[in-house]
Design a protein around this nucleic acid. Structure first.
Lengths: 347, 347
DNA sequence: TGATAACATGTTAACGTTAACTTAATTATT
DNA sequence: AATAATTAAGTTAACGTTAACATGTTATCA
């Protein structure tokens, strides 16, 4: 069977005996069409399996009513929350959402961004970790007048709005909570060189120590040994597990841990239990994110909740404004507050 | 500042003093262009922030080299694995991947599928749970000659390839493992009316009981009370937790649990521990999926591993074949084997 | 009754790109 | 030196849709 060329508006028009424009009006439900004609057209559409060609439509209309979201770590439940909030906000305004994943590298960032802009999305929300190559490419995209909003990520540009949570303060509060409980040797697990949100959390940790006049012991700050993202199957839990093992082998081990996120904390908890130590009696632990699982660990996990849904909603709203108003306003910045959720891993 | 119309090929052509076709050749790196001209064109592209209009290009070329993936539960780490495998397979062949989420309803399924086909993706991979409205719409899409592959989901159509894991056998093996350990009162948590893979897992459970001549006690089979997906923030862990509570309140409680997936199992474990019971001594438990976290639960979780990456790879390969060959072949079906991973929650 | 509004269609000309073809100059081959 | 192959362009005509405008036809109103 030779490849059937898909039916077009004109095919439908010819088959019914009307002008293509009439068919277009039926398909888009605008303009005047008599009920009689409408039904004939709809029948023909069904018979010929007609489906509107999106590319042609987008070309003519000069907009796609679609937004692209580039996510890094998608396995974090909070990325899902974010994506869902973005999608809900968009779909309420008639926009749809395409998600691209870029977990590893600048190359993947560029591929994801490129795919989206090549499909003429009307705007982009970028929530990947910052990196040089990706940022350069993103800058080019911004310069070519594509509306962009970034979430929880460094990227400074006059035309790019920004939303994130106050990771610095979150890290500060988490650490202060441990200090308030009397801990003085507090470890940090999940330090990365890459920067981004986890660096801010680390900075909050350092700030709290400084404020309470506790000397920073660099051996207590640990993270993945290598560029983990290159290693397939290397989970965040494992970073926590291996990091904790390292901290436990120190001559003077920490009495408390602040983990960069909940998965890392869970890995660390495994290592602590394996060593025959009790949580929180021997070692207290705080995570970050408040994933749904955090209430199901044993003991339940003290953690810092960040408003992911709100971040997604705000990002989507700012982007829609930029898409619908080309009046180049001031760059907007939202830094949202985190909330310490105290459970049984610290008290 | 008035909205700048984005620069087009012709703008570049005019600015350099060549034909648009020459610029096209530079942009697409095909055909003959002198080094001199090439450089002038590239400079103009930079100066004018030119970006190729994807819609126009896709319209002309009648293909987009893009595939859409519709995912249901994205928060499961294995969905991520699947998405990554799909993406890798596609990108090796020069295709990009757009992911749409449809977590809740037929309405969302239709929205997601519609958005993708309206952007003229070259093919679709559908991994949502089956539902009436969504399936009808998907059928329409298939009838209009869009290549489609489904993963782990009911959908029968001569032109739609299918890949899944053998959930029936996985459920069977999980249950048999418990029976082999001497258990006779085995509970199932996570039964849904919706069908799909969890139903197959339940069938495997029932098959094992039958084969070993154990009478099915319907009170031991439990699941979410309502259409949970409508309740925001209702997690799979909670289904496990609440389901387990129900089973524990039975006059004669089960001695072992087969949970529909690992998150459900984790929720159930919390309930068991809260009741002051020991795992596996008082109640043994098996999950499904082998999420990275499964080694980090206390005790570590016996579970059924399914090859998500392989599923994604096979799906992508079959789809690419359908896209590149319109020879309508036989429908292909891959049902992959699961593997029981025995850890400390059962032994 | 004539004027106006609402309805029902048709016509035309893009939207920005590229496949297919043509032309012309240069280089290689016999 | 004549012919063929390669290189470097330009020209034309779509791809399928819709905005904008044009043209009738029927209902509504003063």
């Amino acid at each position: 069977m030779p490849k059937k060329r898909p039916a077009t508006l004109s095919d439908i028009a010819a088959s019914v005996g009307v002008a293509p424009m009439t068919v277009s009006r039926v398909v888009n439900e605008n303009g005047y069409v008599s009920e009689q004609t409408r039904e004939k057209v709809l029948q023909a559409i069904k018979d010929l399996n007609y489906r509107r060609n999106g590319s042609a439509r987008n070309l003519k209309r000069r907009c796609t009513e679609t937004v692209g979201l580039v996510l890094g770590d998608i396995s974090n439940p909070y990325s899902t929350e974010l994506a869902n909030a973005v999608r809900e906000t968009l779909s309420a305004r008639g926009f749809s959402l395409f998600i691209c994943i870029s977990e590893h590298s600048a190359k993947e960032d560029i591929a994801a961004l490129g795919a989206l802009v090549n499909h003429s999305v009307d705007g982009l929300i970028v929530a990947t970790r910052s990196n040089k190559g990706g940022d350069e490419y993103l800058r080019e995209i911004v310069e070519s007048n594509v509306p962009v909003v970034v979430i929880g990520r460094d990227f400074h540009h006059a035309d790019v709005d920004f939303v994130s949570t106050d990771n610095l303060n979150g890290g500060f509060e988490a650490t202060r909570h441990l200090i308030d409980l009397g801990h003085r040797r507090i470890g940090f697990i999940g330090a990365t060189l890459g920067g981004g949100s986890s660096l801010k959390r680390l900075q909050g940790y350092l700030k709290a120590l400084e404020q309470y006049k506790i000397t920073v012991d660099e051996r207590l700050v640990t993270g993945p040994r290598e560029a983990i993202s290159e290693v397939p199957g290397y989970s965040t839990e494992r970073i926590g597990y291996e990091g904790m093992k390292r901290l436990l082998s120190l001559p003077e081990r920490p009495t408390a841990i602040f983990a960069r996120n909940d998965f890392t904390a869970i890995g660390a908890m495994t290592a602590i239990k394996e060593a025959g130590l009790k949580i929180p009696e021997d070692i207290a632990i705080v995570g970050f994110d408040d994933i749904p699982l955090a209430v199901h660990t044993a003991p339940s996990l003290t953690t810092v909740r960040q408003p992911m849904r709100l971040q997604g909603k705000l990002a989507a709203e700012m982007l829609l404004e930029r898409i619908e108003n080309d009046s180049v306003e001031q760059r907007r910045e939202h830094v949202l507050n985190c909330e310490l959720i105290i459970r049984n891993s610290t008290v």
